[in-house]
Design a protein around this nucleic acid. Sequence first.
DNA 1: CATGGTGATGTCAGTTTCTGACATGACCAT
DNA 2: ATGGTCATGTCAGAAACTGACATCACCATG
Lengths: 181, 181
Amino acid sequence: MTRWQPDARGRLAQAALELYAERGFDGTTVADIAERAGVTERTFFRHFADKREVLFADGDVADVLVEGVAGETPLAAAIAGFAAVGAVIQDRRAFAEQRNAVIAASPDLQERELIKLASWADAVRDALLAQGVDPTEAALAAQVALAVFRSAFQRWLTSGKDADFARSIRETADALRALVV
Amino acid sequence: MTRWQPDARGRLAQAALELYAERGFDGTTVADIAERAGVTERTFFRHFADKREVLFADGDVADVLVEGVAGETPLAAAIAGFAAVGAVIQDRRAFAEQRNAVIAASPDLQERELIKLASWADAVRDALLAQGVDPTEAALAAQVALAVFRSAFQRWLTSGKDADFARSIRETADALRALVV
DNA sequence: CATGGTGATGTCAGTTTCTGACATGACCAT
DNA sequence: ATGGTCATGTCAGAAACTGACATCACCATG
């Protein structure tokens, strides 16, 4: 006789995404999420630091990001890092869409999203630093690459069901070059 | 006999900045802030939506930003908008430094800072749209200009007491051009 | 001068988020 | 079998916020 069902964390994450989609972030209490997942509220807070974080457990995405940082120039390298993340996201488009819709509907979740993206930019900056890039240049390249990623993500979402993330990145990078000239 | 001292809102903002600097954001309760300002906790929440917002009442900065959006190219126009804000910030350097230090010390405050900056980028994007710029191009230009602003702000802070914000912006914009080439 | 409306604040009760401390019991190594 | 470990449960409480209603200086109006 097992005392608890396995993967409480996964059930909590799933329940949270569903409830945020059904009733909105504000209309959902942590007690609701815990109940649907079949655990107590206290267990929720053992797995996730707060009510928002449950949507942002990216696992090892940061590793993918950092390993992808390589290229001819610092900016190209930074963009390549984000492109690697794009490839991961592309494999779960339906999830990405639902999650994106939920976040777009809640300022609280947007805040958390922004700081997560900022931490990605910091990781890219650090990767560039490790490759000997000048600190100021690395920070700027990471921020600009993030801007490209965000724009490319929107482009990918609005480009239909079978859009290619790498293509969206390339197109956005081209648009950037056109802007700066 | 006046029933209350004037400018409760201003006193709350001042008390909050002081206390966040003294004890940190987490170490400060809204009751602490209200007490120092000589009002009740309820009054705090009438003036500010939440505990973070008290540091982010920028007043008419968004107007300055939008009015500053003008230039030869969309990116130049977007950067000009942020440069206009820079000029305002430059006039209150000591305040900017203290506020920046307080925010840097708290992830919660950083989140709010990021979403405020994002809303600035959205305002710039809308201003570009109003000038007939292509939507995708406008969004990207606004995001890139924000990256330039953030980098320029750091540069300005670390460039000594009498640094010129406009100069930091120019230098960062030059760095961007060098990156993209 | 009286009267009544307005607006900023106070008071208070309640919900929700989040934390610390301690208890439980299945599982595992010895 | 015995004891340790680890995920979870239980409980109490602090702090962030919200809604409803009360107060009373001030001000316009007759």
